[in-house]
Computed example of a mutant assay.
Amino acid sequence: MSYNSEEIDALLKIAPLLNEFMLEDIGILITDTEKVLAYYPGERLDFGIKVGEAIDKNWVVDEALKQRRRVVNEVDESVCGVPYIGVGNPIFNENGTLVGGITISQPTEKKERLLAMSKDLLSTTEEVNNQVEEIAIEAEDMVEMGEKLEEISDETEARVRNTDNIVEIIKDIADKIKILGINASIEAARVGEEGQGFAVVAKEVQNLAEKSVESTTNIEETLEKVNEISSELNNVSEKLAEASDLQASVVNKIHAEMQSLNVLGNKILEMAESLSDDG
C-alpha cells in the first residue's frame, strides 16, 4: 500500500540527519506496511537493504508491525560481525491507522564490553572473597594454636616450679647426709682401729652426698634450660596471637571492601543488561 502519511514523510526528512546527532553509530530503516521506503546504514552496520525491497519476516520491524508495539531484538556478532540491538516501532497516523514502521539498529560492543568487565569483576571479587574466607579460617587456627602453646607453656612452668621444690628437698637431704658422713668420720677417727669399718661406711656416705649434690646441680641446669624454652614458647605464642589479631583485622577490612566491590559489580551488570531491556 502507498504510505501517504505525514508521519512517515517527516521521518524520511529527518532520518538522514539522525546519525549526525547521535553519539553512537546507528542504522535507520523506514518502511510502510509492505516494503522499504528508506535505509541509512551505519558505519559498521550495513545489512545491504534496498529501497523497494519487501519487508523480511525476520526483521524486527515486521514483528513490530504485527504486534503493533515496540519490539527490541538483540543480536550477537555472528550476523554482521558486530553485536547490535534493533528497536522496531510501528508508525500510526493521526487517526490511529498503522501506516508503517521504523527500525533503529545500534552496535552494542560497549555494552558487551561492560557486561564482560562487570562479570570479570564479580568473578574476581568472588574468588578473592573465597581466598579471604580461607585466610580467616587459617587465622582462627593460628589463634587456637597460640592458645594451646600458651597452655603448654604455662603447664611446663608449673611443673618446673614443682620440680624446683623437689630439688630443694634433695639438696637439703644431701647436705644432711654430708654432715652425717663428716660426723661419722670424726667418730671413727676418735675410736681408732676399732672404728675402721665405720670409717669406710662414713666415706661411702660422704661420696653419696657429693653425688647427690652433683645430680641436683645437673637437674637445676636442665630445669633452667626448660624454663628458657618455656619462656620462648610464651613469647612465640604472644607474637602469634598479635599476628593473628592483625591478620583478622586486615581480613575483615578486605572482606568489607570486596563486599562493596561486589555490590558495585552487580550494579554495573544491571546497568549493562538494562541497555537492551525493552520498555
Rank of each mutant, 00 (worst) to 15 (best):
N4C: 04
E6I: 11
I8Q: 05
A10T: 06
L11Q: 03
I14N: 02
A15F: 06
A15I: 10
P16G: 09
N19C: 04
D25H: 10
D32F: 01
D32V: 05
L37Y: 00
Y39G: 07
P41Y: 01
E43T: 10
R44D: 10
D46P: 04
F47H: 11
F47W: 12
G48E: 03
G48Q: 04
G52I: 08
G52Q: 04
E53N: 08
E53H: 11
I55T: 08
D56F: 07
K57D: 12
N58D: 15
V60P: 01
V60D: 03
V60M: 06
D62G: 00
L65D: 01
K66P: 08
K66C: 07
R68N: 06
R68V: 05
R69K: 14
V75F: 01
E77Q: 13
C80G: 13
V82N: 07
P83I: 10
Y84C: 11
Y84S: 12
I85M: 14
E94C: 01
G96K: 09
G100E: 02
G100Y: 01
G100D: 08
G101S: 10
G101W: 06
I104T: 07
I104V: 15
Q106E: 13
T108C: 00
E109C: 02
E112F: 00
L115M: 12
M117K: 09
D120R: 10
L121Y: 03
L122D: 01
S123V: 02
T125C: 11
V128C: 03
N129M: 13
N129T: 14
Q131W: 07
Q131C: 09
V132C: 07
V132T: 14
V132D: 05
I135Q: 07
I135E: 08
I135H: 06
D141E: 14
M142S: 13
K148G: 08
E151R: 12
E151S: 13
I152W: 04
D154C: 08
D154T: 15
N162M: 12
D164P: 03
V167M: 06
E168H: 14
K171V: 10
D172T: 11
K176N: 14
G181Y: 01
A184P: 02
S185N: 11
S185D: 09
E187G: 06
A189G: 11
A189P: 02
G195S: 10
Q196E: 14
A199F: 07
A202K: 04
N207D: 15
N207P: 05
A209Q: 07
E214W: 10
T216R: 07
T216Y: 01
N218Y: 05
E224P: 01
K225F: 06
E228D: 09
S230I: 02
S230T: 10
E232Q: 13
L233D: 04
L233W: 09
L233M: 15
N235K: 11
V236C: 02
S237H: 04
K239S: 05
L240P: 01
L240K: 00
E242I: 12
S244K: 03
L246A: 15
V250A: 15
N252T: 14
I254Q: 02
I254T: 11
M258R: 03
S260G: 08
N262T: 14
K267V: 11
K267C: 02
L269Q: 11
L269A: 13
M271Y: 13
A272H: 01
D277H: 14
D277W: 08
D278P: 06
G279S: 11
